[in-house]
Design a protein around this nucleic acid. Structure first.
Lengths: 108, 108
DNA sequence: CTGACTGTTCTACGGATCTCGAACAGTCAG
DNA sequence: CTGACTGTTCGAGATCCGTAGAACAGTCAG
């Protein structure tokens, strides 16, 4: 059973590209998602609650951008999906980056 | 003598926006400029030498993006312009961010 | 099995971004 | 002052991104 919708591809930690990660984090919506994920894995649906109203296709698109950059993982979990921060991969490839981003004052 | 071409606006350190900084750094060309500036201030012309051939208007546009995000300063210097990393502002507003970006392995 | 639910993919559209050439402004050598 | 030089701004084109609706796939309750 090859790659169906269920099993999405995740880049290896060593293959993460800095500009891709920075770009993934440079969108306010995605950064908000990441901030929320920093407190623990979430079912994708849960992101919806705290974020501005957005179509599920939009949310899925943002999660795809984050996943392809290696920032988050997205694995099947029942009929939902469990989304979590790839802290290990990020810390290994870009030490200190995630911490400094998460430590930044949320707003000005 | 109000803001002419000579005196460009630079945001205050406290006004830096994280997503804008991350976006400014998420372009390969701009990241390369920042890496080069990390070794010391440069006359804008000097960036040209190491970067891929680009129109001076393109370079100016990238420097504008970096400047407006607060990443670099751009002040008149004779008939040229001195471009330098705003390390102090970045470190004050987002501690550790610049260091982690500069410490990242340049290529994969 | 049927129906309700979550989530991805497809398609489309407006807006932003990247790139460049041309025009303009400021500076220095002569 | 004139001309050569550096750099910004303007205008235009191609491309990419964020958003959303509709269609489709997989899962679980009944």
């Amino acid at each position: 059973m090859p790659a169906t919708t269920r099993d999405l591809e995740h880049p290896d930690p060593a293959d993460l590209v800095l500009t891709d990660v920075l770009f993934a984090l440079s969108d306010p919506v995605r950064l908000q998602i990441v901030r929320q994920l920093a407190e623990g894995p979430l079912v994708a649906m849960s992101c919806q609650a705290v974020l501005p109203d957005m179509a599920k296709s939009t949310r899925s698109h943002h999660l795809k951008t984050l996943r392809e950059a290696g920032v988050v993982s997205n694995v099947p979990h029942g009929r939902e999906r469990m989304v979590s921060l790839r802290r290990d991969a990020l810390d290994a490839r870009f030490p200190g980056l995630l911490d400094s981003v998460l430590a930044a004052a949320p707003a000005e």
